[in-house]
């Protein structure tokens, strides 16, 4: 394996594009080093990007925030303004692994590993987050929801990598929340998960809602019907029942060592309900 720290984004994409063997990008390393250890992948080229400009920045932009690809989960959690605006996104990022892993893991790495159980992705999806890609043909912006295409696979072209994630501005009376189910209290991969992002009017009625679920389909899934089920409501019992029904209907999980189809489906609905209540309360709604 060759280890390279390119001097620019352009040099990085040129290196990646030119590599005939297996290339991997290193920022936090908390997934790729595990794969190395398990001999699941033996890269020919490891490209370290975390020293490049902007990679470690959390910058205010158009009322929202641009997060560099090498910003760790811990750094996200320490950013008070970001956490106030997108608490659900940050709590997803802060659930990835242990304290030690938090200090290295990045939401971009979490996204690019393309696991359906990735903890930070449902929150980014409900936030309408947009990834900025750099590649041999320049830069392009792609909604986060479109990045993973199947377990372990992204839509990134050869030579392309993500340089930052953009979280848009929020109106007053908006918030989000993320919950996952794990057997222990820490250190597990999500068996199911749900993120909910809401906007409320002054009276506490939901005017916009996005719901995303994880670990219940080949990729993190945005559930439009679930969002629609609670728009125009104050999360009354009927709305919650509709939310749960729409969420469960969107699940197509597998049974494996971590959970069954039935369990994943049932808990995804429960988590969507609970996350909706948390997001509603954070947004200033009173139930």
């Amino acid at each position: 394996m060759r280890y390279v720290k390119p001097e620019s984004y352009e040099a990085a994409s040129a290196l990646l594009a030119a590599e005939d063997g297996i290339a991997r990008i290193l920022t936090g390393g908390t997934d790729v080093l595990v794969m190395l250890k398990a001999e699941m992948v033996e890269p020919d080229l490891m490209v370290d990007l975390k020293h490049l400009p902007g990679m470690h920045d959390i910058a205010a932009e158009d009322g929202g925030f641009r997060i560099g690809a090498a910003v760790s989960s811990a750094e996200l959690g320490e950013h008070a303004a970001l956490k106030a605006m997108w608490p659900g996104v940050v709590e997803g990022a802060e659930l990835i692994g242990s304290t030690q892993v938090q200090n290295r893991a990045t939401i971009v790495g979490n996204l690019c590993t393309a696991s359906p159980a990735a903890d930070s992705v449902p929150g980014l999806v409900t936030a309408n987050a947009v990834a900025r890609l750099h590649g041999p043909h320049g830069t392009r912006d792609v909604p986060v929801v479109e990045i993973p295409v199947s377990p372990g696979k992204t839509m990134l072209a050869k030579g392309e990598f993500i340089t930052s994630i953009y979280l848009p501005a929020r109106p007053v009376g908006a918030s989000d929340a993320y919950l996952r189910f794990i057997p222990r209290t820490e250190m597990d991969i999500a068996v199911s998960s749900a993120a909910v992002s809401l906007e409320l009017d002054a009276g506490g009625t939901i005017t916009a809602a996005r719901v995303a679920i994880g670990a219940v389909a080949p990729t993190v899934r945005l559930v439009a019907d679930a969002g629609a089920a609670i728009v125009g409501t104050k999360l009354d019992d009927d709305a919650i029942a509709a939310l749960i029904a729409a969420t469960e209907a969107a699940c197509s999980p597998i049974t494996d060592k971590r959970g069954t189809i039935e369990f994943r489906t049932k808990t995804a609905g429960v988590l969507a309900k609970r996350a909706a209540h948390i997001a509603y309360s954070r947004a200033g709604g009173k139930t």
Partner: peptide, 29 residues
Amino acid sequence: ALNEEYIYGEDGRLQNAGFLDYRIPVASD
């Protein structure tokens, strides 16, 4: 009682040969 178990697949292979999925209690549990 709650989480630890050897999980074998249909193929007779151990599916959880690591501390990620062989879940011993952590301090916060």
